[in-house]
Design a binder for these strands. Structure first.
Lengths: 104, 104
DNA sequence: TATATACGCAACCGATTGATTTCATAATAT
DNA sequence: ATATTATGAAATCAATCGGTTGCGTATATA
């Protein structure tokens, strides 16, 4: 079982789930209504998201509310960091070039 | 063919390729030396990365140098933006709470 | 010109994925 | 107590994935 965040966010339905529960915790049934798929399929996606700790359960009677673990999302941000450095660098270079051209 | 960036970065080998060529353009052969897999397998990964425009080819004689399209990486950053807002908000709230506790 | 090198592409294969169907279980409502 | 509702879990299936092997082609070298 290769359960990491990157594999988790690879699926468009899972990304949509993440976006939905980022705003407020939701039950599997409520989530399923937003998609063109069965409740069970959504449940399976939630299991994957739970396994890689992107999502937290909150039991409330017979309902289970799923909430986004926002902090876990930062791991993607952390991976992006290395490239952010590069694209900012390039932006700086472009900036300097433009400044240089202006001077002339 | 479901070829989007999120699916592209789901594979750990592809993420490693991205990291490697972020520093400098490389040929498939040079890349393959870094992995425990065949040149053809790397080539296949490069094809996927090329298809979703995360990578650009630069022909040079019989060699093909693959270079990272850093700008494309920003699309992941853009998707993360919505959550960044949330986690900064939470951090602010924690900050205010701490300030409040200090006052007392 | 013959050979070696760098590479992409197609065929194939086992493992994984995402979905459905069916079932079991626990909480709530009648 | 019985029916209903909310849910997870297991079995199953077609599609996709990541890998290998074998081939064709273009460029470089002998």
């Amino acid at each position: 079982m290769r359960r990491d965040i990157f594999q988790a966010i690879a699926d468009p339905t899972r990304r949509a789930i993440i976006t939905l529960i980022a705003l407020q915790a939701m039950t599997p049934n409520a989530l399923a209504e937003h998609f063109d798929t069965s409740r069970q399929a959504v449940s399976k996606h939630l299991r994957i998201l739970t396994e890689c700790e992107l999502v937290r359960q909150e039991h409330k009677g017979r309902e289970i509310y799923y909430q986004l673990e926002v902090n876990k999302m930062k791991e993607i941000d952390k991976w992006l960091q290395q490239f952010r450095k590069i694209w900012e660098e390039r932006f700086d270079n472009l900036d300097k070039l433009l400044a240089k051209m202006k001077k002339k």
